[in-house]
């Protein structure tokens, strides 16, 4: 009960540490999301419309990568960024950048695979017309991305959800260092291991609220788009 009171006190008093953690969570996940979208959306789109041998295999691989355990991703990125690893000279381990990299590896396949499905559907509708208008290559990719924009928000949202809720990868490469790499999920893990279950739960509730707000916003935008026949 004390922890619950404590959690509310933290929120109501706009506790600086809590907001630092929350803000880092959002920043890291948004930057990761931005990079993943820049890679994943064109990749998924290109795989939907390109024709080359091995295309099906690439899509299969993407779908498999979607289910990659965060801990494995964390470990891979750790070995890469470790001071004795190939990119160790960059000194990125235990920084927010390392967490961003891990999240990018984690959610790019999700965004690519989901957008691939969306664009494949749209491609069935548009392909004849695009051929007829001579629209190919980059112009086609760009057009699909623009026209599927509202459906793609859902793909991006799925990526954001995974990124912001993920703990296994960021705790390995970030180290859960106070005031440096502590985010909501690693803070929850820490409070759980300290036995502060109610506080951990309250932090989880804050994360859930954030997630709800983002979802509500996107659903609102999509509803509007559907009404205007843009979706």
């Amino acid at each position: 009960m004390d922890s619950l009171v404590e959690a509310f006190r933290l929120i109501i008093t706009l506790d600086a540490d809590l907001f630092e953690i929350l803000w880092l969570s959002v920043r890291v996940s948004l930057v990761a999301l931005f990079i993943s979208a820049i890679i994943g959306l064109p990749l998924g789109t290109w795989l939907a419309i390109a024709q080359f041998p091995g295309r099906k295999f690439c899509i299969l691989l993407l779908n498999a990568l979607m289910g990659m355990p965060p801990v494995v991703v964390g470990l891979m990125v750790y070995l890469l960024l470790s001071r004795s690893g190939p990119l160790g000279w960059m000194g990125l381990l235990y920084t927010p950048t390392a967490m961003i990299i891990a999240q990018v590896v984690l959610i790019t396949p999700i965004i690519a695979a989901l957008s691939n499905q969306v664009i494949e559907h749209l491609h069935q509708e548009y392909s004849d017309t695009f051929y007829s208008m001579g629209v190919t290559g980059r112009r086609a990719v760009a057009a699909y991305l623009v026209d599927a924009r509202y459906a793609l928000t859902t793909c991006i949202l799925a990526g954001f959800g995974r990124a912001i809720a993920e703990v296994g990868a960021v705790i390995i490469v970030g180290g859960n260092i106070d005031h440096l790499t502590r985010v909501m999920t690693t803070a929850i893990a820490l409070e759980t291991s300290k036995g502060n279950l109610t506080l951990a739960l309250a932090l989880g509730a804050i994360l859930l609220t954030l997630s709800l707000l983002v979802n509500a916003l996107v659903i609102g935008v999509r509803e509007y788009a559907a009404k205007r026949q843009y979706a």
Partner: peptide, 9 residues
């Protein structure tokens, strides 16, 4: 990545 690093580190 460099931009992200500058923004966050």
């Amino acid at each position: 990545f460099i931009a992200a690093t500058l923004a966050l580190s």
